[in-house]
Amino acid sequence: MYDVVLLSLGSERDAPGGACGGGGACCGGAAPAQGAGAPDGVGAAERCDTPRVPVLACADVLTARGARVETVTARSDAEIDDLLARFDGPPRPDGLTWPDPDSKVRLVVASASDAQLRAVVRRMVRRYAPPPSRRPDDLPGNRTVPDLPPVGVLPLDPARSTTHRDLAAQLGLPRDPAAVAAAVLDGTPRRLDLLRNDGGSVTLDGALVGAADDGGRPLHWRARVEVDDAVLSDGEDPLLACAIGNAGGYARLDDVTLLRNPDPTDGLVEVAVAVPVVTRSALGRKRVRLEVRRARGRAVAVLPREGRVPFLDDGIENELSRKRSWWTEPGAWAVWTS
């Protein structure tokens, strides 16, 4: 039987930026200060000495099935890293740290948001990605990381399946604690694409770049947006939004479809920019229509032309002030499915 670790990172309410990864607050607060207690932009998670109800319910089902269960609350990157060390494989001749494909330990992340799930996957990447100078021959040519250990996802807010469409809902993953336990013990891993970026983080769902005024109305901004060899904007067009999709969380902007068919298993990133275009009717009346330009590819680069442009990345608030690139790692991470 398996050893199962149930990992909690704390709630969004009590831990702005806590263990979310990426230098921003989980629910729109200010980014936490950097320091010894918050490496890589990850603050301390909430002190949750009593596991939440879904965690206890999942643990009870796992225990009843004969699994050895441990509940862990991580309060820093270092504590996440200590836990992930349990998934290390045997020593390799090249000295690289590699995940064990035959591990008898299984991980369940009790997730209050996609940002918390991303925090764990990001630490996996940090642990197992080899330096470019030590790239091994057994690493696929289109990847910079090996197959990461599968993760069970235990959503802590059932309402997000309909009100927010979190990643678990998009992927059709179970939300009931008993069903999550069954998937972890009896299910199979479903491998998914991962977006890495040159800021050192990862993206599971997607990113939405754009600015708005105090009333929530989109503001114009400019940036050069390239997808592989396709140029969606040369930096001269006024943009209202740029969606970068691995999955479909940022597929729409109000009533406008940005991303048509984002698929986290196709090895591609789908990108769209929304450009307001002014036209005139036969009577000379000025009208504004929204033109959506789309492309798919292995990588995308966004270069702002002026100032700082806000963006959301897996729910984390941040700003673009210089060029940022995302690229696809096909099948790099995995979730347990029934």
Rank of each mutant, 00 (worst) to 15 (best):
M124T: 02
R118Y: 00
W98V: 07
D137M: 05
R127D: 00
G141N: 10
G95W: 00
L171C: 05
D157H: 13
R165H: 09
P174L: 07
L156S: 12
S111D: 03
L117F: 05
S161P: 02
V105H: 09
R175C: 14
T144I: 08
A110V: 14
L154Y: 06
P158K: 11
D138A: 14
L148C: 05
G89C: 02
W98H: 10
P130L: 12
G141P: 15
A115F: 08
R126I: 14
A115H: 08
L173N: 00
S111T: 05
H164D: 12
L107S: 05
L96E: 03
D94E: 04
A119G: 11
A112N: 08
P131N: 12
D138N: 13
V105D: 01
P93Y: 01
R106Y: 02
A129R: 05
R123E: 06
P93W: 00
D166L: 14
A168Q: 03
L148D: 01
P93M: 04
R92E: 04
W98E: 12
Q170N: 11
Y128W: 15
R127V: 07
R135G: 02
P93H: 01
L173T: 02
S113T: 10
P146T: 07
T163D: 03
A112P: 12
D114F: 12
A115C: 10
R143D: 01
T144W: 15
V108D: 04
V120I: 02
D100H: 01
V120E: 05
G141C: 12
V105R: 14
V109M: 10
P155Q: 04
M124G: 01
A112T: 05
L154A: 15
R143P: 01
V145H: 11
P91A: 12
D157V: 13
V108K: 11
P91C: 12
D94M: 15
R165G: 03
Q116D: 09
P91I: 06
S133N: 11
R126A: 02
D137P: 07
A110I: 08
R123W: 13
